[in-house]
Write a protein that binds this DNA or RNA. Structure first.
Lengths: 140, 140
DNA sequence: AAAGATAGTGAGGTTACCTCACTATGAGGC
DNA sequence: GCCTCATAGTGAGGTAACCTCACTATCTTT
């Protein structure tokens, strides 16, 4: 098996596994009544705190206009609040509401539980090795 | 660092890497003028040959109705042809056109080249190890 | 003050799915 | 052969998750 075939197979396998992880991750948050994109957004807010929509969009690597939309949806569910940025009147700050904090924590827990199940078939050594290799791939 | 934290970090890292791979994969086929979903479909047809729309949908793990749509789009681009299934008059067979064969091959090559670049930062040993671990995760 | 850049959002668009319903056809049982 | 149930594909309609362009208000730099 040549190097090129290895990599082609590796990419495809990686792709298949990541699609399964994504699907299971989506299912794990579905009972919480929010969508995957919304879950991503509140995850960012939970980890980094209140921020501008533009900053949130950068974190999420989506267009600012799309950031507006995900915040719209979260606000509609009373999971976030918008407030004027005191430093710049053009800008808006997005903050998790108390309910949003709870949902964000529930998302984190559901995701963690799902990851447990997903990676459970690997022993500790393989898990460590995978984490090491993945971190190599993660760097820009 | 506890086991739970390991896995949480691992899942997130895995997620981030797979999103990057997906994005780059999409970009690699963009010049070919087809969308990611269409590329997936012709990939299945290239690998497995002519098949019913229902079978294609199963391969793609999408609803049959969605299978109809992706075939519609491919047919519109003259990349596939529909023909009656001689074994069952309810059914339709989808076949790659000659042009579709060319595009399918171009997709394969573009994907392979992108995977080369993506995994290039790993040495041969790491690549082999990753393939081994991924194959463990791949099994249902 | 003027020019250029920035933040958010309205308007409109594409992609990639989904469910439900319907028609035509096939399979199995009587 | 007839009836019932299942199946294959697709019309109709819907949601989610992005995108670009354009616009107003505000900020920064010259």
């Amino acid at each position: 098996m040549g190097a090129q075939e290895d990599e082609e197979t590796l990419a495809e396998a990686f792709w298949a596994v990541s699609r399964r992880l994504r699907h299971r991750s989506h299912e794990s948050i579905s009972p919480l009544g929010i969508t995957p994109a919304q879950a991503r957004a509140i995850g960012v807010l939970r980890r980094h705190g209140s921020m501008r929509i533009s900053t949130l969009s950068e974190h999420l690597r989506i267009a600012p206009r799309s950031g507006t939309e995900v915040v719209d949806a979260l606000q509609e569910r009373a999971l976030v609040q918008r407030s004027p940025d005191p430093d710049d009147r053009r800008a808006v700050l997005v903050t998790l509401s108390p309910q949003g904090e709870e949902v964000a924590e529930a998302v984190r827990r559901a995701r963690a539980a799902e990851a447990d199940l997903f990676f459970d078939r690997l022993d500790e050594a393989d898990r460590t090795e995978l984490a090491r290799i993945i971190s190599l791939l993660r760097r820009p």
